[in-house]
């Protein structure tokens, strides 16, 4: 990551992301992102608000509920909650258009969701 100077004088970093296909609406994080890091999205600097791990996705543009998410140039699901540019796109704001994903604490066959 490249260290830069934020307006308030604290040092920050430009996070590395990858655009896999020109049509994509998400970028893939290829080095860990901390809140305050600078994300370069289509030559525009955006300050990261979320901590994001390698392999996770960030929004390339503002995404609204119902929008199809494109990665590898292909649809990979739909947005359920609005995401600002640079926001983390994951289970909390998008869903499968095929079979719902499950996690350890909440899965289709294990009764009610955890509070």
């Amino acid at each position: 990551m490249v260290p830069t100077e934020k307006p308030d004088g604290k040092s920050s970093s430009v996070a590395q992301t990858l655009l896999l296909h020109p049509d994509d609406t998400v970028l893939v994080c290829i080095s860990a992102i901390a809140p305050g890091d600078i994300l370069m999205i289509d030559q525009v600097a955006v300050s990261a608000t979320d901590a994001i791990q390698v392999g996770h996705k960030i929004a390339r543009q503002a995404l609204k509920p119902g929008d199809t998410v494109l990665k590898y140039g292909a649809p990979i699901g739909s947005i359920t909650h609005a995401v600002p540019p640079g926001g983390h796109v994951h289970m909390h704001n998008m869903k499968s258009d095929y079979i719902a994903s499950h996690s350890r604490d909440r899965s289709p066959n294990q009764g009610k969701p955890q509070p």
Binding site: I99, S101, S107
Partner: peptide, 19 residues
């Protein structure tokens, strides 16, 4: 009742089966 998608896939940044 499940797709072929494990919790570790999600922890690693994958969100959906089609992804």
């Amino acid at each position: 009742g499940f797709g072929s998608f494990a919790p570790g896939n999600a922890e690693g940044g994958l969100t959906t089966l089609e992804e």
